[in-house]
Amino acid sequence: MKFLGLVVVGMFLSVKSFAFILMDPDYRIGSPENVVVNLASGGCQAAGISNQELLNIISDALNNYWNTVPESRLMMKPGSESSVPVTQLPPDGQVIIGCASLGASTGGVTNVSYTASGSARIRINSDFYGANYNYESLLGVIVHELGHAVGLHHSDDGASVMTYRASSWMPGPSSLSQDDMDGVAFLYPNEKELGGLLGGCGLKVRDYAHQKNQKELTLWRQIVESLFSFTSVILFFIFSIRFFAFQARMILSRP
């Protein structure tokens, strides 16, 4: 028993810290379950990127990165070209993305409204990104700037999409890092349902358009997920039916 006690203590002792940093303690994007990411008036057409191209990249940045955190209710969807110029902040709960000449030092800049129900504007540097843009590079910049839009600041963790360092995964991230996911879970946690007994099941959130741009699941993963879900649901229903049938029989058999 003493040995077991030592093992338990040893297992729970070592802890590492993590790195996500916030833009502001009180800033949150408005309506986090339904954030719309629109194009600023004119989008990046002046730089040679069509609205559809830009919306497709935004859709990838949302569906393959920021919308994938299971412990967070954050869900963003791509919108369309708005009438808001890139020099202004959009209404609460919205993000706009456009292009502007920003010089040689940055790929993009994000400004947020610093309120508890905020909005954000993202300016992509048209000095870097024009008609011959590199998809991975532009995707990396948009993923990073969207991280600012939801409230994350620069991370010191080289694996994070919010890092300020030059990392070997650049220009295009393969997925969020653990720090990024923890940051989004901290800022936009799933709300409890039924007093916490059923967790946050996410039924209120729908899948959005541009599904074709979602990350393609590998075949084995689709098969495993399907088999898992099917088996679990079937077994659960069998157990439930047998349980209620048994209870009904017990009640009916009472004298």
């Binding site: 996500f20 940093i21 620069h154 300020y164 901290f186 099941c201 996410g202």
Partner: peptide, 23 residues
């Protein structure tokens, strides 16, 4: 934290945040 060519003030998370997930 570094920000472009300069630095800026950023914030560590403060308080506790609890997230509920169904499995």
């Amino acid at each position: 934290v570094p920000n472009g060519t300069s630095t800026t003030t950023a914030y560590r998370p403060s308080g506790s945040s609890k997230s509920y997930t169904t499995t």
